[in-house]
Design a protein around this nucleic acid. Structure first.
Lengths: 251, 251
DNA sequence: GCTTTGGGCTGATCGAGATCAGTCGACGAT
DNA sequence: ATCGTCGACTGATCTCGATCAGCCCAAAGC
């Protein structure tokens, strides 16, 4: 997706622009401001944290390619993965807005990001208020996902939780063209799934086997295959209106 | 807390203004715009929902007095309370930004609120971008609380979870002048606690007894008393930097 | 007066999922 | 060529918290 300005300048609208565009119809000026936010392109290798819990005044990042996860560490060494990020998602936006990071972010695979400085972000907001509204929208969407995750951990049993999780991930990936109702490539290990779902790795394995043996999903060799999408949806009781955004809501 | 404009006009800055003011230093104009958002004052009785899961294009509310909770219902009748709201908090902000509500909001006590219409909110953002930034900040703060809640449910055992919860609530109430390190008035029932913490009401009771018998907190007759604040903090492993905001960060 | 209702409280039993203690195969490093 | 590591996988056992089945007390209703 590109926009072409007079004099032939071509601007690639990144995944983020596409996502925001689903909420507010962004003008050329707004797209330009958004474009200027992408300060510096950087890469990080899998496993080395880009945002660290407790640090103050960090930059935020926009994920271009690869997968990351945001998590919190407990003093006894346990960790809880709060969410996974896929291309187009912000990394560490909360750290910037709150001026101190309440969580860490770790790349699951090698990733490419662009850096966004706090001051540039707030300046962009004052120049183009609609951009601020759009970012509030992404933040709300993220919060809705965390809430859904909370409900899953609090009230669903291990198998439903896993089914729901794999479906939600599939839906998110489909929205950015990286998945379908057939399945998707998924670089997560069973250990990562365990830390995300509040289970032990051992139990993740059993649960995955169960879902596979019931002919609903197969998670194998870095690939999730939906063997029976509809039955899985029914089993997991999956409905996520907040991911169903189709056209811009703010003209 | 009041601001006095020339010609003697007096504007009461509501709890929300106080909260936002902790993040961005708001000008008189901005306070006025904020004031105009408070459209209509309404009251709701305990137990009758103001926001209902699945409804589209609702208004948001700002809580003036009383307690509320936001929750999600599962088809099997279980519910998970996501968060409790106290004066100064938004109710259903996400419903407005996402244009459809992913959760319900129920008053725990009789409450007073003021209504905020979506269109007014977005208009206010475009007039005073700093207000948009401030609202993004509250949303991020709320998200941080949900994340902390998620971690608690995923990785803490029932007793730590309860201890952490009572401490966080105490801190939030202290910020709006409704609590201290000695304790606070708390209208929550053990059933509500159970739905929030992902436990059964029976187990909530046992956990409260345990904490009481260990001389850490007493929850009785609508009042939470911290018998030994420091030991409780250590036991619950409580540290919440995101609630520690002291002065305005954006001048 | 009696009864209903709602919140707090308790003991006994049961089960989902953690924990412990492994095996197995694939890779990359020395 | 072998060692170390990492991820997937399995069986046996233990435990935390759910569930069931109650009791007690205070306030509200008839």
């Amino acid at each position: 997706m590109f926009i072409i300005l007079r004099k032939g300048t071509i601007i690639e609208t990144r995944p983020l622009a596409r996502k925001l565009g689903a909420f507010v119809a962004l003008s050329k000026t707004e797209l330009l401001v958004l474009e200027r936010l992408h300060k510096r392109r950087r890469t990080f290798v899998a496993g080395r944290d880009l945002v660290e819990q407790g640090q103050a005044d960090q930059a935020a990042y926009i994920l271009i390619s690869g997968w990351a996860c945001s998590y919190k560490l407990l003093p006894d060494g346990q960790r809880q993965i709060v969410d996974f990020q896929i291309p187009g998602d912000f990394l560490g936006l909360r750290s910037v807005v709150l001026h101190v990071s309440d969580h860490s972010v770790e790349p699951v695979t090698d990733i490419e990001v662009t850096e966004v400085h706090a001051s540039d972000l707030f300046k962009a907001f004052s120049e183009t208020p609609r951009l601020a509204t759009a970012v509030l929208w992404t933040a709300s969407r993220d919060e809705a996902m965390v809430v859904e995750h909370l409900v899953g951990i609090g009230r669903r049993d291990a198998t439903e939780r896993m089914a729901h999780f794999l479906l939600e991930l599939g839906k998110r990936l489909t929205l950015v063209g990286m998945g379908s109702k057939a399945g998707y490539a998924c670089p997560l290990t069973q250990y990562l799934l365990a830390d995300a779902l509040g289970l032990s790795a051992v139990h993740v394995n059993r649960v995955l086997r169960e879902l596979r043996e019931h002919g609903m999903v197969t998670f194998r060799d870095g690939y999730v295959t939906f063997d029976n999408y509809d039955r899985l949806v029914e089993f997991a009781d999956f409905e996520v209106s907040y991911l169903d955004q189709v056209g811009p809501l703010l003209k």
